[in-house]
Design a protein around this nucleic acid. Structure first.
Length: 187
DNA sequence: CCTCCGATGTGCT
DNA sequence: GCACATCGGAGGC
């Protein structure tokens, strides 16, 4: 067997674009993600190993869910050449379960906004802290590979204070579900 | 475009 | 105890 080189965190993130996340009655196609690279990445929760970040030092394909300011955000732990890498799920296009997603988000949102932003994506999918640690290859939340995502754009990550210029955010070019860029005020 | 702020968990001191 | 955060929505300029 030929030895296989593991991808970098940005490569792993980019490869997730176009994939499907299926769970809790809704499925969506990923349109926007960000790479976080562990100890080499000051913006990553896994920059230091703590009780919260320990899951990212474990096996890949697990869901890392955390709360911030009352919202949930979900990452997939990925196998890379470095330790403790993860990909933040920032936005998606809802494919199935649109009515359920709309009920979870509130009625007055256009379809393109149902899963725009990491907090909103989790709300649309019904992901909470109860999904922390789920194996996306066999758990209640599944990751299914997609086809060619089409043109991909890259730029700095949203809202991070440290390493604010690394172009580790990836999105489908011109897709209406993609969130707006916000630079951290102190970056 | 920008700034503020709710609301809350995490980790450092 | 306390500063800060992978946010989102509202409101001001």
């Amino acid at each position: 067997m030929a030895e296989q080189r593991l991808p970098s965190a940005p490569e792993a993130a980019r490869r997730l674009l176009g994939a499907r996340i299926v769970g809790h009655g809704v499925s969506l196609r990923l349109t926007e993600v960000e790479a976080y690279a562990g100890p080499d990445d000051p913006a990553s929760h896994a920059f230091r190993r703590t009780p919260r970040s320990a899951i990212m030092y474990g096996p890949p394909d697990r869901l890392y869910v955390y709360r911030i300011h009352g919202h949930h955000c979900a990452n997939i732990v990925v196998a890379t050449g470095g330790a403790a890498a993860a990909v933040l799920l920032r936005a998606g296009e809802v494919i199935d379960g649109v009515d359920l997603a709309r009920r979870r988000r509130g009625e007055h949102h256009p379809d393109a906004a149902l899963a725009r932003g990491p907090g909103n994506l989790c709300r649309a999918l019904g992901i909470t802290i109860a999904d922390l640690g789920v194996d996306v290859t066999q758990g209640p939340i599944r990751l299914e590979s997609g086809g060619d995502p089409g043109p991909v754009a890259a730029g700095p990550r949203v809202g991070v204070r440290l390493a604010a210029d690394r172009p580790w955010r990836f999105w489908l070019a011109d897709h209406p579900t993609v969130s707006a860029y916000r630079r951290h005020p102190k970056a």
